[in-house]
Structure formats: C-alpha cells, structure tokens
C-alpha cells in the first residue's frame, strides 16, 4: 500500500555523495548569541550536518582554532564553506584549507558576485567547481536557480546543487517558485538543497513540498528571539514538508469538491 511505502521516515534517507543522512535540515554556525546557544540549537534542530565559514576566521593562519574546536566537539558532519570569497582563487585556497582542517572532501562552494544581494558569481562558481572536483573535492555549489548554470555545475562534477531561495539572510523564503519548480523538474535525480533566504519554518516546509531534498539555513535560527525554540520549529517543519511530499499532496482545483456526497440536490 502506498501509505506503508510513504509513511516510513526511518527509511527515508538523503544522499550527499556517498553519505546517507536522516536529517534534511543543514544548519549554519554564524551569528548566534554565543557558542553555548549554538550548541543547544544544533542539538534541537536534529541536524546531522553543520556548515562552518573559514575565510575570515582563519585570520593570518589558523587563528580560528578555538571556535572550530567547539564545532568539532558537536560530533556532527562538517560542511566547510567558502563564505566571503569573491574570486575563484580565494575560494579554491579556502577549500584546500578546509579539507585539511576538517578532514573532509566536502565543500560548500560560495563565490560571491554582488555585495547587495550576495548573489553568487555563477561564472566564477563553475570555474572553481571544475578545479575542486578535479582535485577530488565533493562540491556543494551555492547557485542561483538558473538551469544552464546547474547543467554546467553537473558537467563540472558536482553531484549536489544548492540553489538560493532568496538573498542570504533576507528571510524572504522562496522568491522564484517557477524557477525552483523548473530546476526540480529538470534534474529529478540530483539532490537539491535550498540554501539561503529562508526565514520562517513554513518556507522550509514549502521547499520540501516542491520536492526539494533538503534545506540549509543559518540566520533564521541564529537571529531568532529564541534560537533553540526556532531550531526545534524548523525541525518539525522540515519533517512536515518532507512527509507531505512523500504523501503526495492533492492537486488544487477551481471548484469545491464536497467530501461527502450531497444527497437531494441532484442538479447542483
């Protein structure tokens, strides 16, 4: 029965490269009031993957070690990122440092192209992705919802794509539903992660209802009035959205469809 197939979240795994995960919520580690609240929020979110920025924290060398140590102590899978990088060279160098620091081939690749929207420089992104994939990295590219860019990133060797919902930290949710639907439809077999722009749990649920495989967020939890409670709320929303997708939501229709037959009104 369909219900049995779908209502079994324990078997519903997310695959990033060759890693299988239960949680579909990926969480950032910046902007929290304190590392202690960060640790509590991570635990409440149920996340198995955290993303950590390195570019600025590294300073002139490895000066961020204290904070990175706190992240490692969470015993979660670390997805280092290249946030703050604006050139291919910078992003590649940061990725190489990340691999060494966290002993992982994973890298969330960000090449920022524009200061106001922090939108990715997709040309630099594809170029950096080619270099990193060739060096054996498992690249998670932060991209716009552009189909052609997606195609080129897959050609470069990426096996996960991370389109934005809306600009980083804006909390505006999914700005371009049409584009995000098209991306999902074009690449049915590729794990797609909404990265950036989510503000409310309902927006995370919406991403899953569209068929997205996971969401990554930071500001929405870190800068909430109560980050720990918000982490819990996002966890529930992700489970609800994913559950709804697997359960197959009904198609909307224009006219009412009475849930019980209306007797005695034969001609209405």
């Amino acid at each position: 029965m369909a219900a049995e197939l779908n209502a079994a979240p324990a078997d519903d795994r997310l695959h990033f490269y060759d890693v299988a995960l239960h949680s579909r919520l990926l969480v950032g580690t910046a902007l929290y009031p304190s590392p202690a609240i960060l640790a509590e929020a991570l635990s409440a979110s149920g996340a198995e993957v955290v993303t950590v920025s390195l570019r600025r924290e590294a300073g002139g060398g490895r000066a961020g070690e204290s904070f990175w140590g706190l992240i490692r102590a969470q015993n979660l899978r670390v997805l280092p990122n290249t946030a703050g990088c604006r050139t291919v060279k910078e992003a590649v160098a940061t990725a190489q440092m990340a691999r060494e620091l966290f002993a992982t081939p994973w890298i969330k690749l960000e090449v920022i192209g524009e200061e106001d929207t922090l939108q990715p420089d997709v040309f630099g992104l594809v170029e950096a992705a080619k270099i990193l994939c060739a060096e054996g990295f498992e690249v998670f590219p932060y991209m716009t919802e552009d189909l052609v860019v997606a195609e080129k990133l897959l050609d470069a060797g990426c096996r996960v794509l991370m389109p934005w919902g809306s600009p980083i930290g804006s909390g505006r949710g999914l700005n371009n539903l049409f584009g995000l639907r098209a991306l999902r439809a074009h690449f049915p077999g590729v794990p797609l992660v909404i990265d950036a722009g989510l503000g409310a749990p309902s927006q995370a649920a919406q991403a899953f209802e569209l068929g997205y495989d996971a969401v990554l967020l930071n500001t929405a939890i870190a800068r909430a009035g109560d980050p720990v409670a918000m982490a819990r709320a996002f966890k529930a929303a992700c489970e609800a959205g994913r559950g709804a997708f697997l359960a197959q939501t009904i198609e909307p229709r224009d006219m009412a469809a009475p849930s019980t037959p209306v007797l005695g009104k034969a001609f209405t």
Binding site: R56, E57, A58, G59, G60, A63, G64, E65, S66, F67
Partner: peptide, 13 residues
C-alpha cells in the same frame, strides 16, 4: 566580532 584569536592584526576588509 570574529571568532578567532588574532590579537594585533587589523584586516583591510
């Protein structure tokens, strides 16, 4: 506010 422990190094950024 940067999570690192460099004491005397002011960056251009």
């Amino acid at each position: 506010m940067i999570e690192n422990e460099e004491r005397a190094r002011v960056t251009a950024r």
